[in-house]
Design a binder for these strands. Structure first.
Lengths: 250, 250
DNA sequence: ATTTTTAATATGTTTGAACATATGAACAAT
DNA sequence: ATTGTTCATATGTTCAAACATATTAAAAAT
C-alpha cells in the first residue's frame, strides 16, 4: 500500500509529546487501519526514519514497543512485518466465555444482548481511570445453555479503544478487540465474591432471590497496564464453576 | 542491601549474549531473589551503568523492558523502584493467605488448627493423582480476623513431599515447603463457586446455614505439573473478597 | 510559620556514528 | 542437482554526548 511511502503522515517536531511516542502512535494507527497488509513488510527503518526526520534509534524505540506488545515481528534480514497469527487462540481459555464454553463442548446462546452508550458511574470510572460521567460503550448480556440463563454480565469499554457501539458483538469479544482495534489484553484483575442474588439478578437469571451467585468484577489491562474493560458478572453457581489456571511468572 | 553495590555481579563483556540482555537477566534475578526491599530505590542508572561497564543507554534498554513487564517503576526525580504491588510476581501474595492478609494490613489468627494423617477420599486422591485410601497429611484450619471466623479450609499434601505432620504449620505454608522440602509451586488450578453454607460450614464459620459462601477448590502443581497440594476452602463472603491478578502467559 | 524561588538531580529524549550479525540471493564449485 | 562461498542488506548492539523535564529539597522571601 505504501509503495511510495510519501503517504505516511509526518510527525510534529514542535509538539511536546516525544517523537518516539508520536512514531509509536502513528504506527499503531497505521496498523489498526490496516494500511499494511498483514505479513507485508514494513518500510525499512532507515527509510521511515528519514521520512519522519528522526534518528533510527528513536524509531527503533517505537518499533520495539510494538514488538513487545506483539503487533510486529522483526526478522534479521527479512525486515519488520505485521504479525499474522493473532493471539486470539491464546485468549480462548483465558478470558473468553465463548471459547471457554466451546472448549467444554457446552453449546450456549445469547438470551439478551444490548449495546448502549452510557455515562460511566463512579465505580466504572474509577476502574477505567476516566472521569465519572464520561460516555462509555456498555455491553449487557444474558447467556444460557439450553433455556436456563447461566450468566448475566455488563461490560464497560475504555473510550480510547474507539468502539462505536456499532461493531459486531456476536463474535468473541477479544477477537474483535484484537483484530479490529489491536488491543491485546495482558492482565486481568479479578475480585470474586459469593453473594445472595438480588431481586434484579434473580429475575434475570430466573432463580429465587437469595440464592448464592458468583459475582466477578474484573478489570482487563493491556501490556502498558492501561485499562481496557471493566466487567461485572453474575454466574448461577448451580450450573457453573469458575475455573482458572494461574501460573507463577518469572 | 546494596549500599555499596560492589556486591552486584559483573557482566561478561566477552559473552555472545548482548549486554542489555545480560543486564536484564541480572536485574530480574536480583529482584526475584529479593535483593531489593520492595519500594526500595534501585541504584541510579549512572552508577549501575558504570559498575557494569556499559553505557547508560544500554542499561536503560534493560530497565525499560522490566518496566514494560511491570516489575519496576520509574519516577522522574525519585528514581527507579521495585513495584510494590506484585500480586502476580510474588509468591507470597500469590498463594499464601498469611501474606495476603498481612499485605492488606488485616491482623488474623488461627481459631482452630489440626494436623492429621488421613486416608485420601476419592476426590482428594483424584486431584493428587494417588490411589484412594492412601494416607496423606491433612491440615485443617479456621482463621479469623478479630473474633469472626473468616475462612475454613482443609489441605491435603502429596505424599511424595515427605511431610511428617510434625512440622511447624504456624509459619506460612509455602515458605515451609520451599525452605524445608524445596517444593516450589508454579501452577494453581482453581475452581470457584458460590454455594449456600451447609450446616457444617455454617457452624464452623458461625453464620446461618444457607448464607452464600465462596468455595474454592484448588490443586497446586510444581514446575513439572506434579500435584503438591489439594485444598478446599470456604470463605465468608460478607467479610472477604477473593482478589487475583492474572497475567496472560506469553 | 508559610509561601515562593531556586538549585540539584535522576530520569527522559534524541542524535549520529560505528560495528556486529543473521540471512536471502547470487554465484561458484562439487 | 547439490553443496558451498561470497556479498549485500536490514536489523541488532552499543556508545558518548547533549539537552529536556519533572520533582525534591534547600534557600529565600513573605
Amino acid at each position: 500500500m505504501f509503495e511510495h511511502m510519501n503517504n505516511i503522515p509526518l510527525l510534529d517536531h514542535d509538539s511536546k509529546t516525544p517523537l518516539h511516542q508520536q512514531a509509536e502512535d502513528q504506527l499503531r494507527r497505521l496498523i489498526r487501519e490496516n494500511h499494511f497488509r498483514e505479513g507485508d513488510p514494513f518500510p525499512k527503518e532507515t527509510d521511515l526514519a528519514r521520512r519522519w526526520g528522526i534518528s533510527r534509534n528513536t524509531l527503533r524505540q517505537a518499533i520495539g514497543s510494538l514488538v513487545k506488545d506483539g503487533l510486529l515481528e522483526r526478522k534479521k534480514r527479512a525486515g519488520t512485518t505485521v504479525r499474522k497469527k493473532k493471539i486470539t487462540t491464546d485468549l480462548s481459555s483465558w478470558l473468553s466465555f465463548t471459547h471457554e464454553m466451546e472448549d467444554k463442548g457446552i453449546p450456549f446462546k445469547d438470551l439478551c444482548h444490548t449495546v448502549e452508550l452510557k455515562k460511566a458511574g463512579k465505580e466504572t470510572a474509577r476502574k477505567l481511570q476516566i472521569p465519572a460521567g464520561e460516555k462509555v460503550v456498555t455491553l449487557e448480556r444474558i447467556r444460557s445453555t439450553g433455556k436456563n440463563p447461566m450468566v448475566y454480565f455488563e461490560s464497560f469499554f475504555h473510550p480510547r479503544i474507539g468502539l462505536t457501539g456499532k461493531e459486531n458483538y456476536k463474535r468473541p469479544l477479544y477477537e474483535l478487540l484484537d483484530e479490529e482495534f489491536h488491543i491485546i489484553p495482558v492482565y486481568s484483575q479479578e475480585e470474586i465474591r459469593a453473594v445472595a442474588a438480588s431481586e434484579k439478578i434473580a429475575a434475570l437469571l430466573k432463580i429465587t432471590p437469595g440464592t448464592p451467585v458468583l459475582e466477578r468484577k474484573r478489570v482487563v489491562l493491556d501490556a502498558g497496564r492501561k485499562p481496557v474493560e471493566y466487567n461485572i458478572c453474575y454466574y448461577r453457581s448451580d450450573w457453573f464453576t469458575y475455573s482458572i489456571e494461574i501460573k507463577r511468572p518469572l
